[in-house]
């Protein structure tokens, strides 16, 4: 399997997922919330390719429509932690000293918790809403961004071109913003891509245990949870399709991240 092919496939898959997220409601064959008492727990067929659930709702439509919610939770969480994390990380890496110690201690403290458990605690304390799922996911991702950004900044802090910029009389904050920060972006992009998958898994995990998204909203994690009860009686399609969608989305982001990593850093190939 050529590596370029893998990257191309994962990138097309990524575009497809984004497309579903944007236009899912128009593509779904049925209303994802419409119940039909006469048509419950039907296995996959031509009319319902993914079958129907215990309330007679079309699983395919629900899986498609759920894309937007799952993606937007993950995307907002990742965006939040990227902005805050890279700001804190570059400050810590560039100025070092007390900044570094305080920010480092802060991120170590978050890391001292098992992260998913901390997310559960945060949602429990802040309240059981979708926004709080986003905040919780953002907070538990923060240390990774701080770490990458700090490391990438501090290796560049002493670079010749930074000293050259100082010789041009450019202020420290501008050096950080224009000379150092843009060069830390490629490794940060890799981090984002790898993190997206994890953020999706996390959010889905939280809703699987009943946090955040409430029924009847379609979301992959909660759909798997709803389908779980029927697994032992053989109705596999309820849980399989949302679970597979979740898996494919995460897989796609991970492949993309690996591909990006190879592009950005050919030496650290895996």
């Amino acid at each position: 399997m050529s590596e370029n092919l893998v990257t191309v496939v994962s990138f097309s898959l990524f575009l497809f997922i984004v497309f579903l997220g944007l236009f899912g409601e128009f593509l779904a064959p049925y209303d994802p919330l419409a119940t039909a008492a006469s048509n419950t727990l039907r296995p996959p067929s031509w009319t319902h390719p993914f079958g129907t659930d215990n309330l007679g709702r079309d699983v395919l439509s629900r899986v498609i429509v759920a894309t937007r919610l799952d993606l937007s939770i993950a995307l907002s969480a990742v965006a939040l932690s990227f902005v805050i994390g890279s700001a804190l990380g570059s400050v810590a890496g560039f100025w070092g000293g007390w900044w570094d110690r305080i920010i480092g201690r802060f991120s170590d403290t978050i890391m001292a918790f098992p992260l998913f458990v901390l997310a559960m605690g945060i949602v429990a304390a802040l309240g059981n809403t979708v926004e709080n799922i986003v905040y919780a996911t953002a907070i538990i991702n923060l240390p990774f961004y701080i770490r990458v950004s700090r490391a990438e900044t501090s290796v560049r802090r002493e670079a010749g071109y930074v000293a050259a910029a100082r010789l041009c009389g450019i202020s420290e904050i501008r050096i950080l913003a224009t000379q150092v920060f843009p060069n830390t972006l490629p490794p940060m992009m890799v981090q984002i891509s790898l993190n997206m998958g994890w953020a999706i898994l996390n959010a889905a995990g939280l809703s699987f245990i009943g946090l955040g998204v409430r029924a009847p909203d379609a979301e992959w994690g909660i759909m798997v949870a709803e389908g779980a009860t029927y697994i032992v009686s053989g109705e596999w399609w309820l849980a399989l399709f949302p679970g597979a969608a979740l898996m494919i989305a995460v897989f796609c982001f991970n492949l993309l991240g690996d591909g990006l990593r190879d592009l950005v850093d050919p030496q650290r190939r895996t």
Partner: peptide, 22 residues
């Protein structure tokens, strides 16, 4: 490695149950 980090644990668990129990 790539597939493994993409698997939601609850999903793997459920399908192991489906295959090995049901």
């Amino acid at each position: 490695v790539t597939a493994g980090v993409s698997l939601p644990t609850f999903f793997t668990g459920l399908f192991l149950i489906y295959i090995f129990y049901y």
